Computed example of a mutant assay.
Amino acid sequence: MARHDDTDSEFDPTGERERSVGEGLFDETMSPGSAFAHLYRGEIHRMKFWRERLDRTTNWAVTIMAAILTWAFSSPDRPHYIILVGVAAVTMFLVIEARRYRGYDIWRSRVRLLQENVFANALDPSSGVEDRQWRRELSEDYRRPVAKIGREEAIVHRLRRIYLPLLSLLLLAWLLRVAVLTPDAEWPASAAVGAISGLLVTAAVALFYALLAFVAFRPRQWHAMGELRRQDVGAWEDED
């Protein structure tokens, strides 16, 4: 233990030897192939780990949605608002998955940078690299990792790919439940939840899905294209 402390006390990060650690590791004279292979393998592993986290969130959302729909249609006496509880639960999973997607995109963007500028160039040197500043950009990203896309873009990406179909299915199920499978009351009275009138509940549902459609399909400039960014992307920012 004392030996470890002595070693730490002798380490000077500002010293000339310490500052030159790793210098020239990827130069041609140092045979960079092995170093690049290990670097790329590590980035692929991290990207795969975060991809699995995305899949787990989606699986939970589908499982809960299936359980709620099964229970809601198992008897005509089941309250229709349990489907709206499912809408809220799936929306919560959407927000969680969007946050995880921002983490996943950090590793994905690095992998794409290596693929475009190292491996593609190695396979066909006549085309050159896609970004002449890729080494500097990757170095800056390793020093100060930042999110490459904003929260809105991450939400929209997962909404279009996964959650809009799931939420649309829940909407159709709810409409079927209140408009067709409630014989003792007609719409909009059949959509009432306790003291809240059916018309107000229907208006709230319509407003929520209109907001989803606006967020999902409004024109925007996409940032999740593989490039690295030097500044963290804020939440719900206006795209250039």
Rank of each mutant, 00 (worst) to 15 (best):
L171R: 15
A147W: 15
R143T: 09
V178P: 07
D141A: 10
T182D: 07
A154C: 04
V178I: 15
A173M: 05
L138V: 00
T182P: 01
L138H: 04
I149T: 05
V146W: 15
L169T: 15
R161E: 15
R158F: 05
S139L: 02
L159H: 06
L170A: 12
L181N: 03
V146L: 13
V180P: 00
I149K: 03
P145C: 02
L159Y: 09
P165D: 08
R160H: 01
Y142V: 00
V156K: 12
S139D: 00
E140G: 03
Y142F: 13
A185K: 13
R143G: 12
K148F: 06
K148Y: 07
V180L: 02
L175F: 06
T182R: 04
L170N: 02
R160S: 05
L166W: 01
R160L: 10
R143N: 13
L175V: 08
R158M: 14
R161G: 12
P145I: 06
R144Q: 07
V156H: 08
L181Q: 00
D141W: 14
V178S: 00
Y163V: 08
E152I: 10
P165A: 11
D184N: 09
E140A: 10
V146A: 11
A147E: 11
I155W: 09
R151Y: 14
I149Q: 05
L167S: 02
L175Y: 01
E152L: 06
S168P: 04
L181F: 03
L138S: 01
R160Q: 07
E153P: 03
D141E: 13
D184A: 14
Y142L: 06
A147V: 13
I162Q: 13
L169G: 15
E152Y: 00
P165Q: 01
I162L: 13
V178T: 02
L166N: 05
A154Q: 04
L172G: 13
I162K: 08
D184Y: 03
S139Y: 08
S168D: 14
H157I: 14
L172N: 11
E152N: 05
Y163S: 03
P183Y: 02
R144H: 08
E152A: 08
R161V: 13
A147T: 13
E152W: 07
Y142G: 01
R144V: 03
A147F: 15
P183F: 11
E140Y: 11
L138M: 04
R143D: 03
R151G: 15
T182H: 08
L176G: 10
G150F: 04
I155Y: 04
L170Y: 01
